[in-house]
């Protein structure tokens, strides 16, 4: 594959065919609980996208310039999660000082993000798949947007669902999972569109 197109292909694959939520089940916890409301979904989606794109970049640098040369590969779990947590704290502090409206919109979601498995997942996948710097960034960005897309669609559907009659046992989590399954099926339709 042409190396100039590769990062772009990684990006589209991460958004559609290999959606981090629908194909890898990552970020399910917050997906299930937050998708109840459209407004919060948008806030969390934006925050996840931002953090994912930047931390994948940061962690790539840390991994390739610090961990690998020092042969500390085995510590990557700790290092990645600490980088993510520290970055999130930093962003929270900056947003709090700089813009009140932005803080009101995103601030409350930031602590939730540290424990969002999708963020760590992206960092681990990018390492194991040997992406270069640019591809790692587009992978992080694409995964974030893919996650955003999934939660946005789900929130929209769930708002309509609020007035629908659902079998009692399926209320809440059950029906959400079934819809997620259908979305996963639909996204599988994109397969073949992108060749990595």
């Amino acid at each position: 594959m042409n190396s100039a197109v590769y990062p772009l292909a990684v990006f589209f694959a991460a958004v559609f065919t290999n959606n981090i939520l629908l194909a890898n089940y990552l970020g399910m916890c917050s997906f299930l609980s937050v998708s109840r409301e459209l407004k919060t979904s948008v806030g969390l989606g934006a925050a996840v996208t931002f953090v994912m794109a930047t931390t994948s970049l940061l962690n790539w640098l840390v991994y390739h310039y610090i961990l690998l040369p020092l042969d500390l590969d085995y510590l990557r779990f700790i290092v990645f999660i600490v980088v993510i947590a520290a970055f999130v704290q930093l962003v929270e502090m900056i947003i709090e000082r700089v813009s009140e409206t932005l803080y009101a919109a995103l601030g409350i979601f930031l602590p939730l993000i540290t424990v969002n498995c999708a963020i760590l997942g992206v960092c681990l996948f990018m390492v194991i798949r040997d992406y270069d710097l640019l591809s790692s960034f587009t992978f992080g960005l694409g995964s974030g947007i893919g996650w955003f897309l999934a939660i946005l669609a789900m929130a929209g559907i769930r708002q309509k669902l609020a007035r629908a009659r659902v079998p009692r046992g399926l209320e809440g989590a059950g029906i959400t999972l079934i819809i997620t399954g259908m979305m996963a099926l639909a996204f599988m339709g994109f397969t073949g569109m992108i060749k990595l």
Binding site: L177, G181, A184
Partner: peptide, 19 residues
């Protein structure tokens, strides 16, 4: 064995137990 299967299976399981 594909991704959607896990969602459906989990939903059915929750349905049965909750019911």
């Amino acid at each position: 064995v594909m991704p959607p299967g896990a969602f459906f299976m989990l939903a059915v399981f929750i349905w049965i137990v909750k019911g």
